[in-house]
Design a protein around this nucleic acid. Structure first.
Lengths: 154, 154
DNA sequence: GCGAATTGGTTTCAAATGAAACTAATACGT
DNA sequence: ACGTATTAGTTTCATTTGAAACCAATTCGC
């Protein structure tokens, strides 16, 4: 099991991001969303509807950066559980107008503080200055990543 | 589409990590691994075998933090393509001894510089000091996340 | 030693995922 | 207007995923 020079996977940025993201998402799901029988996409739908309502399904796609199939299924599941309700847009009858029902709002108000609490716990390790730095770094990395992704292959 | 106070998903750390990780992994796959018909798990296996060989399948699980099913399948695919080869451990005949074949090494030597180049492009936006800061922040966040994940639910 | 528990690894099965096809409603070009 | 192109959203299908069952080899306990 020699150690040749090569790529150190455990230091490779995309890999580290993947592990970190997996760890936090899985833990968040295990603690809070799973017990409430919410999938991650459903949780995201509830979160954006709690803040911006009414939204159409495609608005939700934009806001959550999720595939429209994923959103369609999350919405279907939440409607079945009467956590969100759907009206039809008067101007454009293809578009839906989605919003939380009272029990959806209750779910939202239950889950959001837990999620924020989790985030706060993660960040307790960092000083305020470090949090600010992290914030900016993540923004710039995402911008860079989107720039690269938009660029045609060489 | 009012803006109530609530959770701002686009600022929520686990969400941002998820988007950033998805964006970089998908782009890396689209550019380099996809055209070489490598999945992300296969790429990871090649990366760790290029550095530490021979390894057993469970060694690879540890090093890559992937599920043993995922590793088993990645290894099977790479063996079918004769990019890695398997011997049996003399001491413990359950364990495999995996290493790159010459063509596997060639694939490794082809892909690693591309992956490192991609990472370098991502990081060009950041000054050396910022990269160092990012490095430390990611380490500490991962440590914190693992600490939380290991902790029993409240 | 020898049966039970553990570990390495594969297979099976059910759930999640997304690309592509599809339906329905609207916008666009001439 | 009227046919074509586009957009909103759902369904279908093939692929990916991981939990659990499984087989084989090894180690542990007595």
């Amino acid at each position: 099991m020699s150690d040749k020079p090569g790529l150190r996977l455990e230091r490779f940025l995309p890999y580290r991001l993947s592990i970190l993201s997996q760890t936090t998402s899985a833990d968040l799901h295990r603690r809070y969303f799973g017990p409430s029988h919410l999938t991650i996409p459903q949780w995201r739908v509830i979160a954006v509807l709690g803040r911006f309502a009414p939204l159409s399904a495609s608005d939700i796609c934009r806001r959550t950066v999720m595939d429209k199939v994923t959103v369609s299924r999350a919405v279907a599941g939440l409607r079945r559980r009467r956590l969100i309700e759907q009206a039809t847009d008067g101007n454009d009858r293809r578009r839906s107008q989605l919003r939380l029902t009272p029990s959806g709002q209750a779910m939202h108000d239950l889950i959001v503080p837990l999620a924020l609490g989790y985030e706060a716990e993660l960040l307790t390790q960092l000083s305020p200055a470090e949090r600010k730095a992290l914030d900016g770094l993540l923004d710039r990395l995402l911008e860079a990543a989107r720039g690269l992704a938009a660029r045609p292959d060489p």
